[in-house]
Write a protein that binds this DNA or RNA. Structure first.
Lengths: 196, 196, 196, 196
DNA sequence: TATGAATGAGGCTTCATTCAT
DNA sequence: AATGAATGAAGCCTCATTCAT
């Protein structure tokens, strides 16, 4: 409460305001990747930064707030690409291939280490909220049969997610895309139609 | 050494010793389900137990060790079922349907809350380690085409994983099984063959 | 969260459970006296103790809880004496002298340093809650005129409180008691009667 | 140096400088009233101000310094009134009644919440330092008997202090003044004479 | 072995204060 | 002067773990 501060406080003041926010987000992304969101602590994030502990709180109230900011960032990066990939699709094959490709590219470019426990990472979660919508739109356009959209979205998500692990581990984006696309292209006609 | 510690209590002692381990594992399973592995603390586990904190350390060195013990337990419960389901399959359709059904039933019977963030629990992870092996065995038996076994396993895992969320949320096990099975039954022939 | 504890943890474990509570209360009393309740921190209390920080929380949830425990302690020490002093009084002079004397003795025996800011200390507050009751009872017995009991209690409290500061600073208990008693003995008949 | 910083704004600047000090003091008074001196933080004071945190330190080195400045301000407001009330008194009754009345009015007009724990506020403390002096002067003038001036001052202070709580709680200033005055008017002759 | 109090590292957050702009 | 972001000490509390009984 009554700190008689050290006389030697100099240094560590080079980064600008806007940069610091980015610094923290970058560090948080790395830390979440390494430890997982739940295990990561605010201190971990701060330590991954040249900043002082208090500085964190000038930008974010909590770990959760960083998480949301990260999701927003992802939203700006990944989700529009995915939407675009899906909405611009004229054929079923385009819908699938474009989506998978966009996702795998994104994952391949992220420098996150491949870690099974990252289900809760912003990267993974971001953008899947809109998938179901797009699937339904595609059904209306006739690109998909009248199957349960929720189940189909879940299956697409699951396949994308698990194959993304392989992409992270070094698998080819294009080959992986082809594989996933083929699975659904072949599987779709066989799926049970939704009952009314 | 008073009368209470008579010969008659010896047998009970043995029982208690074995039971305490079980008590802790049971509590840990519940706690991991409720809070997730990362958020759960040893204290939480102890609190979910009638035992004293020190007693925990007579059985386990850490939370991680409990986790591993739980996985071992699961191995005894879920994984054999899955192996059995897959190994006894005479047809591709049996392989798929039996596997998905066993998994979805298992998930449906777990009382875990339907929480995306709890996927790091032993229940979910257990049993997928052996999938790839079984896929390769099935390929040898001619049940699956000569596609990349790693990718196929990942796709199976992903679909099982995501649809399990719907099962947790109340979806019918059988319907979900039919959906997943149909997807792969239809998709398998379309998959690119593994290059040599 | 995952402390690899120092190997050299020995020592500091001599006090028994019951003693530790007392140790903390004693330290708290001292700290509250020196810094005042509001300024005192849990750390201050712990530091005034040979105990570890966590130990505090084995006994009390917060500074407030220590405060209440201290008040309870006081209640057991001072208040019964004051009640007894007032209730056993057969004359007005006895009521006043016994009360003041009991309070001043109590204060004199406390080793608290004389500090104006201790209004909020448990010592001061304890026991005054019952004063008004006793004043009214005394009025019913005819020991006090029918003046406003609230005001009279407040005046008694104020005088006791301020003169207690002098006692803390070294003034004679008996002389101070005589002074305070005389003031009220002389002043009581002059007080305005309560209007009905 | 653009147009906004024209000659016309110079005067305003001077005014601002003087006003800022006042702004801070005003905010501090409010904050101390609401939170108490000990609990209040410099941040609280700054937040109660349109100024920046750094600006605070152009005017005061610490919370304590604000406190002292506030006491000085009070000295200019309350203490002269009290001194005047006491020095102009021709009779004992005037001395007492004028003092109590001035104090109770002051308290009644303060908007402090009626909180026992705020007695360390500048308002309450200010002005009592000089009481003893005035009591001795009054003794020299024959308005008070030759009793211990320190004890008498303490008793006056205590009564004023406690009855002020009732005034804060809504009691009539005049009635309270009459009560306190009567107590001392009646009690004074009964007090033990100071021994030489 | 079981117990549970003690320990202190370390997590979270706020605060007073500095200092570049 | 005024600003407000940065700083890091220090407050609060929980946790894993130890150890005397």
């Amino acid at each position: 409460m009554d700190a008689k501060h050290s006389v030697l406080t100099a240094g560590r003041r080079e980064l600008t305001k806007a940069q610091n926010r980015e610094t923290i987000l970058l560090a948080a992304r790395r830390v979440f990747s390494e430890l997982g969101f739940a295990a990561a602590t605010v201190r971990d994030i701060i330590r991954a930064t040249p900043l002082a502990s208090g500085t964190f709180y000038n930008y974010f109230k909590s770990k959760e707030e960083v998480y949301l900011a990260l999701r927003d960032q992802e939203a700006l990066a990944l989700r529009p690409k995915l939407r675009q990939a899906r909405r611009s699709a004229a054929t079923t094959q385009e819908f699938l291939a474009n989506s998978f490709r966009a996702f795998f590219w994104f994952v391949a470019e992220s420098q996150d280490p491949p870690d099974r426990f990252r289900m809760d990472s912003p990267e993974v979660l971001a953008g899947f909220a809109e998938l179901r919508d797009d699937v339904e739109t595609a059904q209306a356009k006739g690109l998909f049969p009248a199957v349960d959209a929720g189940r189909l979205s879940a299956a697409l998500t699951g396949v994308a997610f698990e194959l993304a692990e392989q992409v992270k581990a070094g698998a080819e984006v294009e080959e992986t895309t082809v594989f996933a696309t083929a699975l659904f292209l072949g599987g779709l006609p066989a799926l049970p139609k939704k009952r009314f």
